[in-house]
């Protein structure tokens, strides 16, 4: 009954959910961008967590609705493509890798898709790895771009880099985002059960 590969229906579903997740992500990033100016970067720590918390239910629904291998990867690639259009081509490589990690989470015993807990876990891992991306990019820029027209700024930037991108901070971002998306997945799963499973729109394995 179930086709192995992604059909048009799955592809369209993934594309639409990707666009919505992207939209929410970028809208919130803007808010957090402003906030981090005000809090001297403090908001960066939680921005990933909040964004993941809100997008995890959508991600979960997408994965469960499509229920086939390849969904996470395609989602991830599309995400990267949209960044490419915004002028950030390296994002495609990063997202292809993240997508593969997400897919790998779903690999064992083939029944991963449609399984709520497994999907939720994959979702959390996926989203938390994803959240490292802005930090990673900034880290590369900060470390490898010889910067500052004035010496003082250069030194300051190096100092601030140390504050924001030491392993502890990055680890903290990862953990916070993981917690955020885990809570999001949990709440999302509850939402899906209440609204979609009961009414027969979605079939899942507990």
């Amino acid at each position: 009954m179930r086709k192995k590969f992604l059909g048009i229906r799955d592809v369209v579903t993934i594309a639409i959910f990707t666009a919505a997740i992207m939209m929410i992500g970028s809208a919130l990033s803007k808010v957090f961008g402003v906030l981090s100016f005000l809090t001297a970067g403090g908001a960066i720590l939680v921005s990933g967590a909040v964004i993941s918390f809100l997008t995890a239910p959508l991600f979960l629904l997408m994965v469960l609705k499509v229920g086939k291998h390849g969904a996470i990867f395609l989602h991830s690639i599309l995400y990267g493509f949209i960044f490419l259009l915004a002028g950030l081509p390296h994002m495609v490589i990063f997202y292809a890798l993240v997508g593969l990690i997400g897919e790998a989470m779903m690999m064992p015993r083939g029944s991963g898709y449609r399984h709520v807990f497994r999907s939720g876990l994959a979702c959390s891992v996926f989203l938390s790895v994803k959240s490292l991306h802005p930090a990673a990019i900034l880290w590369i820029i900060g470390n490898y771009n010889p910067q500052g027209v004035h010496g003082y700024t250069a030194a300051q930037i190096a100092k601030m880099m140390d504050i924001y991108f030491n392993p502890i901070t990055v680890g903290l971002i990862f953990v916070l985002t993981f917690v955020g998306s885990a809570i999001g997945s949990f709440a999302g799963a509850r939402l899906l059960r209440r609204h979609f499973v009961k009414s027969g729109i979605l079939q899942i394995n507990e």
Binding site: G7, I8, V11, V12, I16, A19, A20, F81
Partner: peptide, 21 residues
Amino acid sequence: KTIIVAFSVSLRFVPIAGMEI
């Protein structure tokens, strides 16, 4: 074809998603 369709749909849908929200 599926990739082309997926790409075109998500591209077109980003502004619409904003309106929906």
